[in-house]
């Protein structure tokens, strides 16, 4: 199973999470997002970039409540709230956004 991006093949698991984290690019993120039925806006990118930075620093994808708290601090309560996050990523902000960000499925995510 793989994504095709700019002539490159990027392997992913059965749920769509990429196998090698270093394969990620912004173009790949757009491809994954499209398959998820999401059109990337600045707000989507802010979440994706936050997730990538968090993973880079702590080696884990944050739990949803940690993500929302951080986005609230960074972008304000209008965006950093549960409802808005689910509007951006209808199948779950951590689960779906992590997939687009090229990270493993978050720990404790059922």
């Amino acid at each position: 199973m793989s994504y095709e991006v700019n002539g490159q093949t990027v392997e992913h698991d059965e749920e769509g999470y990429i196998t090698n984290l270093s394969d990620w690019s912004e173009d790949l993120a757009k491809v994954i997002a499209e398959q998820e039925g999401i059109e990337m806006t600045d707000e989507h990118w802010a979440v994706v970039n936050f997730l990538r930075d968090y993973y880079e620093e702590y080696q884990i994808a944050p739990a949803v409540r940690v993500l929302i708290k951080a986005i609230k601090k960074q972008m304000g309560p209008e965006i950093g709230n549960n409802k808005h996050m689910y509007e951006l990523f209808p199948y779950g902000p951590a689960k779906q956004a992590c997939k687009i960000a090229g990270l493993p499925k978050p720990t404790g995510c059922v």
Partner: peptide, 14 residues
């Protein structure tokens, strides 16, 4: 193997 020592620094968020 994965270096998980940075993850201890995330515990405050939890």
């Amino acid at each position: 193997v994965k270096n998980f020592s940075p993850t201890f620094r995330a515990l405050g968020d939890y």
